[in-house]
């Protein structure tokens, strides 16, 4: 016998009021990052010893530029979700926890945006 109301079951949100959204987003970004991370490592290895012109020319090419932006977006989304869970588990002061989570979210957004802007600038100016 379930004690959940029919409405509660349909919404599927549970006590945290967000359902599986966080968990699911972490898995989706994780799956995306498997090929992206491997591609990135292989690319960086092939760029070792390359000069400024070669490196920026590579970053600015359509396929690397798009994959880099995807990598950056998925990385910072995934990092923010993961760090949030760590903070929720180990920081027990409510105010401090909220401040730390907000700081992580803002930092991930700023860093991700800065890097994506860098890729776009190289792509459109180089």
């Amino acid at each position: 016998m379930s004690l959940r109301s029919p409405l509660g079951r349909v919404r599927g949100l549970g006590s945290a009021k967000e359902g599986t959204a966080h968990w699911w987003a972490q898995r989706v970004t994780a799956i995306a990052l498997v090929p992206l991370a491997l591609w990135f490592v292989a690319s960086i290895l092939s760029l070792i010893g390359a000069d400024y012109a070669t490196t920026t020319a590579w970053i600015g090419m359509p396929v690397p530029a798009v994959l880099l932006i995807l990598l950056l977006t998925a990385t910072f989304y995934h990092a923010q979700l993961g760090l949030q869970v760590v903070l929720e588990d180990y920081v027990h002061n409510e105010g401090l926890k909220l401040a730390a989570i907000l700081l992580v979210k803002f930092a991930c957004l700023v860093l991700g945006l800065a890097a994506v802007f860098g890729v776009l600038k190289i792509a459109f100016q180089g």
């Binding site: 990385t75 990092a79 993961g82 800065a114 890097a115 860098g118």
Partner: peptide, 22 residues
């Protein structure tokens, strides 16, 4: 968890590298 935190900190260098190139 620990490596996740390490990687998150490591992204600082990735961002620095791209922004420097830009």
């Amino acid at each position: 968890r620990f490596t996740g935190i390490v990687l998150a900190v490591g992204t600082l260098h990735l961002v620095y590298w791209i922004v420097a190139a830009a």
